[in-house]
Design a binder for these strands. Structure first.
Length: 556
DNA sequence: GGGTACACTTAGCAACTCACGA
DNA sequence: TCGTGAGTTGCTAAGTGTACCC
């Protein structure tokens, strides 16, 4: 169930900015120490065997484990890896090993492959032992006490060392992600609690008692210098309440969105360039659910953009295209280097403004040179309390789900209703550009499904023949069988449609982060659909508050 | 305003699990 | 009983947005 404190009801937290008054936990699980390779697993440099120091060997194994990944062929990856690897080498190693091309990691690679094969081939009993040990670790480290409630921790393990794999064309790919020691770790818990012990012979970097934040453990990673946190599971009170708040803010936007839209339409005509830019950007964020687009430091990460950071090269303008007027073509890499490609007809004023913004600019110049997310968000804050650019994504996602469900749900059988739900969900995922790589097994799995469908069709036509020839007293039973087969066939066909429509769309992200769960809960109640058909166990835990709260007439 | 530190949400993919059919 | 693959979970990168400093 969902944890609530009796003293402070749901949604009414302390006003002094404190997030909890009591917090006790066991600290993180450190990464397993490095186990040196057995001596029969060799490394060769320039054809000659070479025994590596443990430090250099460990980093070499990181590379060896990735050998059949495309990464290891990329120039940037290899260059970064080699540079960082050399830092870990002893001085003789460093002077000998000067060319990555001459390094032969094959025996190491084979060794790890064999190991993973062996793991797969373990006896049931050995697998069970591992499972039991994992469960023990979860029970010991996976929970904390926050304000009288035992809460599940999300990521209680410290990230193990390895080679950094960024997304897209990341300039730092291949760099060594170093091992985190207790001396790097800050523990956060309440003063009166039992502090987690650091491993024998070590010390935490710091133990602090900051109840203005929600994290239990933090450390700074060495690739970007970013802080990493251990926090609570989405099922926790603290996350659930924040989630609920997020949707309430989005519902507030619903109340005033028409006013805001009128406002930015007016602003398209402003005498001031900065206001016109702000208004056009906001139009994109609203209409297309684009992300805000903070500035990024060049060379620190992949070159991706959002709305405010769009460059001239990311759009093309067509006064007329495919029979439509004033078409804007977007083509850019967004978060996680996922491509956003869209052709949208826009209002004439928007189009004229865009032409103006692009005048006398180079392709690599900012489209909105008088705008950034900070300016935009300050403006939004003035229009509505708590309003920021990302609220539009939440609002448009949730309102789209609600509308689509209304439009698509028909009084049919259960599988058809589920298909309608998935289609509504899909409309949102498309809006938010939540893509995925087509599963490698897609074609095969579609074929398998088609085989099943064909077999079912055969069964059905056999049954039909039987019905014709059956004697009257058998007819009733035959009819039942016939009905059952038809149902099974329909189910398979719906499944095939759903899968085909979904091959390059990821539904999970919108379901988990953008869709007010109360819409789905209400829909299930209204149509008598078990919630399990829509949310799996984890999702039901995360959305327990909504499952408790929403009635069948809930309106986002 | 601009830079930076920090906290927190959002994201896709890989690994794992478990139910199902051969 | 085993192998398969769809669904689930874990992992951790990559965003957003605020606070605070100058």
């Amino acid at each position: 169930g969902f944890a609530r404190t009796p003293q402070v009801p749901f949604g009414e937290r302390a006003t002094d900015g404190s997030k909890w008054s009591f917090l006790e936990h066991k600290g993180p699980v450190m990464a397993a120490p490095y186990e040196p390779l057995p001596s029969n697993v060799r490394f060769f440099y320039d054809g000659k065997q070479m025994k590596l120091s443990p430090e250099a060997e460990e980093v070499a194994t990181f590379f060896a484990k990735m050998l059949d990944h495309e990464y290891t062929t990329k120039d940037t990856f290899r260059k970064n890896f080699f540079k960082d690897w050399r830092k870990e080498m002893a001085s003789e190693e460093k002077s000998k090993i000067t060319d990555l091309k001459k390094c032969n990691f094959n025996e190491m690679g084979e060794y790890f492959k064999a190991q993973s094969e062996a793991r797969k081939a373990m006896t049931k009993d050995d697998k069970l032992k591992i499972k039991v040990e994992n469960e023990r670790l979860l029970q010991e480290y996976g929970f904390c006490i926050m304000d009288n409630h035992k809460e599940r921790i999300a990521n209680f393990r410290i990230e193990p060392p390895g080679l950094f794999r960024g997304r897209g064309d990341h300039p730092k790919m291949g760099m060594l992600k170093r091992r985190i020691r207790p001396e790097d770790i800050i523990i956060n818990c309440s003063k009166g609690s039992k502090h987690p012990k650091s491993p024998p012979g070590t010390k935490w970097k710091e133990v602090r008692h900051d109840n203005k934040v929600t994290w239990l453990v933090s450390w700074t990673e060495n690739i970007q210098g970013a802080i990493k946190y251990i926090m609570l599971n989405p099922s926790s009170r603290i996350k659930g309440e924040k989630d609920w708040q997020k949707y309430e803010t989005a519902r507030n936007l619903k109340k005033c969105v028409e006013r805001l839209r009128n406002q930015y339409r007016e602003d398209w005509k402003s005498k001031e360039m900065r206001i016109r830019q702000r208004a056009v950007a906001l139009y994109f964020i609203d209409k297309l659910a684009l992300r805000a687009g903070n500035e990024k430091e060049e060379g620190e990460s992949a070159d991706t953009v959002g709305c405010c950071s769009l460059r001239v090269e990311h759009i093309n303008l067509y006064p007329e295209k495919d029979g439509q007027d004033f078409v804007v073509e977007f083509d850019f890499l967004g978060k996680d280097s996922i491509r956003y490609y869209n052709k949208v007809p826009v209002e004439k004023r928007v189009f004229k403004n865009l032409q103006l913004f692009m005048e006398n600019k180079q392709p690599e110049d900012d489209l909105f040179d008088r705008l950034n997310t900070s300016i935009l968000n300050k403006h939004l804050q003035e229009l509505m309390d708590g309003l920021t650019a990302k609220v539009f994504r939440t609002y448009n996602a949730s309102i789209t789900l609600q509308q689509q469900l209304k439009e698509l749900t028909t009084d049919e059988n259960l599988p058809a209703k589920i298909l309608s739900y998935n289609r509504a969900n899909r409309a949102v995922a498309i809006l938010c550009n939540h893509q995925r790589a087509q599963p490698k097994t897609f074609e095969k799995s579609m074929q398998n499904l088609q085989t099943k469908i064909d077999a079912k069709k055969d069964q059905l036509s056999d049954a039909k023949r039987d019905v014709k020839s059956a004697k009257a007293d058998l007819k009733v039973r035959r009819d039942e069988k016939f009905k059952k087969l038809e149902e099974q066939l329909m189910k398979l066909e719906v499944q095939a449609t759903d899968r085909e429509e979904n091959k390059q769309i990821a539904l999970g992200t919108s379901k988990l982060n953008y869709l007010d769960p109360r819409i789905s809960v209400a829909w299930c109640k209204k149509w008598g659909i078990p919630i399990e058909k829509i949310y799996n166990k984890t999702q039901r835990e995360k959305f327990a508050w909504a499952i408790d709260m929403a009635e069948d007439d809930y309106e986002f």
